[in-house]
């Protein structure tokens, strides 16, 4: 964990670049939705007001920073260069060593990025709605949901990273992974806007657990039973994906041949 914090500090510029890039993207989307709302002539769009939409965009951004996992690239690179052998030699569980590393970085992100962003979002909401709406209970549940979301994201990324055993174009795979996740997780467009049947399917897929669920909980769009149900869905996916990543790992590591030394 400490190593993770240190490497995030060392690569703070990279993190800053991605954080600012993400914010820019939020603004593009903000203006796009503003235009959509003004073109539609109504200020309520399937239960979303423009204020909701703005909250949704920025909360998705915050959430995606927290659930971001670079394990896909890390594993991929190590497999390609054969460095994975070094990890195999060490008497620590391979995926746990990646996990510990990342959690350190995420802890720091929470302090330096998430908290200021949340404060900013709440100030915006207070000004836009006219009263202070922050709900500590929802926030606590949001955090529980984010932790599960991160675990899911970590496992999904790990599975994609293991693809390096089979495919060489990791950059292409990465683009593919990101665009699929962005779309299916509701980061690009809230799932409530999607056609009914598609929404129903996506709500049960692991992707919606990675961003949509925590964000909707934070925004107070779910009632208590629904929150419990959604968090249970997340937990189930976290377990299933854990099993899947183990399965791929055991299959793949048998084919591993490291060249040179």
């Amino acid at each position: 964990m400490k190593a993770g914090i240190q490497s995030l500090i060392a690569y703070r510029m990279n993190f800053l670049g991605f954080a600012i890039g993400g914010l820019i993207y939020c603004f593009v989307m903000y203006y796009l939705w503003k235009a959509v709302f003004s073109s539609s002539g109504s200020d309520n769009f399937m239960g979303f007001s423009m204020v909701d939409m703005t909250l949704y965009l920025f909360l998705s951004n915050v959430t995606s920073q927290l659930t971001f996992s670079s394990v896909c690239d890390d594993v991929g690179e190590e497999i390609r260069h054969g460095d994975i052998a070094m990890r195999l030699l060490k008497p620590v569980n391979t995926d746990l060593s990646y996990l510990a590393n990342e959690i350190g970085g995420n802890y720091l992100k929470f302090i330096v990025s998430t908290i200021p962003m949340i404060i900013g979002i709440e100030i915006y909401r207070t000004l836009a709605v006219g009263n202070f709406m922050f709900n500590i209970g929802n926030f606590a549940l949001y955090l529980v949901s984010v932790i599960l979301a991160y675990l899911i994201s970590f496992r999904v990324n790990l599975c994609f990273g293991f693809m390096a055993f089979y495919v060489k174009n990791l950059w292409g795979m990465n683009i593919l992974k990101n665009s699929i996740i962005n779309f299916l997780s509701g980061m690009l467009i809230p799932l409530v806007f999607m056609p009914e049947f598609l929404r129903k399917i996506l709500e049960y897929m692991p992707f919606s657990s990675m961003s949509y669920t925590p964000v909707m909980i934070y925004m107070g769009k779910y009632d208590t039973t629904e929150i419990i149900f959604r968090i249970a869905v997340q937990a189930v996916w976290a377990i299933l994906l854990y099993a899947l990543s183990k399965l791929i790992w055991f299959h793949a590591v048998k084919r591993l041949t490291v060249q040179g030394g």
């Binding site: 495919v167 060489k168 174009n169 950059w171 292409g172 593919l176 665009s179 699929i180």
Partner: peptide, 12 residues
């Protein structure tokens, strides 16, 4: 296969 992954990725 590399080329296909890349091109298909950008296509999707």
């Amino acid at each position: 296969a590399d080329f296909l992954t890349g091109a298909v990725s950008f296509l999707i």
